[in-house]
């Protein structure tokens, strides 16, 4: 009787131990299948997007200088779009003044040296996109466009003098692609000059055509 009980007890023990012994690795195996990722989650946010609000433009055109005729103008601009309406930009423009009528007619010695004839402007401006829109090249093909107005201030270096200047004008931009645009800029540089003896305020109008690249 005793041995029978012992046998029963032992077989029960063996059974349970076998059961648990087998079950344990399976459970462990199941657990090990649930692999927790070790990488940290990098939240996808708006900051991940590339900001292409900067624009660099180069232009060439004409500058009309009072008394000095018209001359070729080269200009460069670095701008930043604050939002859909406003942008700020730094401007640089360069031209070389021609001869005055007096110099041409009298045949006298030139009033300015070659170096003094170099006209330079550098300054900053604030622009406002007045009319955003589209231009239609054909019935079914349109490109985005924007007409902006701007005002700014800076320096004019001309005739050996460095004077404050106000720049105002308008810019018509046609977007050839998302990041290249063609520009037509009409601009007025207003500055005081005393190069021809009397102090006077001078309006120098310029018209320039060029390209702008967004980055």
């Amino acid at each position: 009787m005793e041995t029978r009980l012992q046998r029963l007890f032992l077989s029960a023990c063996l059974g349970t131990s076998l059961l648990f012994g087998l079950a344990a690795p399976i459970a462990a195996q199941e657990q090990s299948l649930k692999i927790e990722p070790q990488i940290e989650r990098d939240p996808v946010t708006q900051d991940k997007l590339d900001d292409e609000s900067f624009v660099f433009a180069v232009r060439g055109g004409l500058l009309s200088l009072n008394d000095f005729g018209s001359s070729g103008l080269a200009a460069a601009q670095l701008g930043y779009h604050i939002n859909e309406d406003f942008y700020v930009a730094f401007d640089y423009a360069k031209a070389k003044a021609g001869l005055t009528s007096f110099e041409k007619l009298s045949g006298a010695a030139p009033l300015l040296t070659d170096e003094q004839r170099q006209w330079q402007y550098y300054g900053a401006q604030l622009g406002y996109v007045l009319f955003p829109g589209e231009v239609f090249l054909t019935r079914n093909y349109a490109m985005n466009s924007a007409l902006s107005i701007f005002v700014g201030g800076g320096n004019v270096d001309f005739a050996g003098d460095n004077v404050f200047a106000i720049q105002a004008g308008s810019q018509f931009r046609v977007y050839l692609t998302d990041w290249i645009a063609a520009d037509l800029v009409l601009s007025d540089y207003v500055f005081e000059t005393s190069v021809l003896a009397e102090q006077k305020s001078q309006h120098s109008l310029s018209l320039a055509l060029g390209f702008a690249v967004y980055f």
């Binding site: 900001d51 829109g133 985005n144």
Partner: peptide, 25 residues
């Protein structure tokens, strides 16, 4: 275009997928 002045071309409705590319302004 990047401005409320540019015309609306289309609308994306609930559940539709978009891919965000860049920002400007």
């Amino acid at each position: 275009g990047p401005g409320s002045g540019y015309p609306i071309k289309t609308s994306a409705i609930k559940g539709e997928q978009l891919q965000l590319l860049i920002t400007r302004g």
